[in-house]
Amino acid sequence: MTEDEIKTIIFQLLKRIAPETEPSVLKPDEKFREILGIDSFDALQFIVALNEKLGIEIPEEDYGKITTIKTLVAYILNKKK
């Protein structure tokens, strides 16, 4: 799975969870929860959606490592290795 494919999936899932927002305008280093107004509930839904779509399980202690699109993509790539 390429970086671009992962990004596309991330944007699709974010859009599904926060349909009023436009995730594709996010810059790689922006904290997407802040920019899109994702609260704890939405954030958990997003983690669940990533789990269902990509089969990766993100433990709670790793939440702090995946705050931007860049770090999230890197995290997923690493998990998918």
Binding site: S40, F41, L44, I47, V48, N51, E52, E57, I58, E60
Partner: peptide, 9 residues
């Protein structure tokens, strides 16, 4: 499992 996690709320 992920989908059964609880929120602090």
């Amino acid at each position: 499992v992920v989908k059964d996690r609880l929120l602090p709320a």
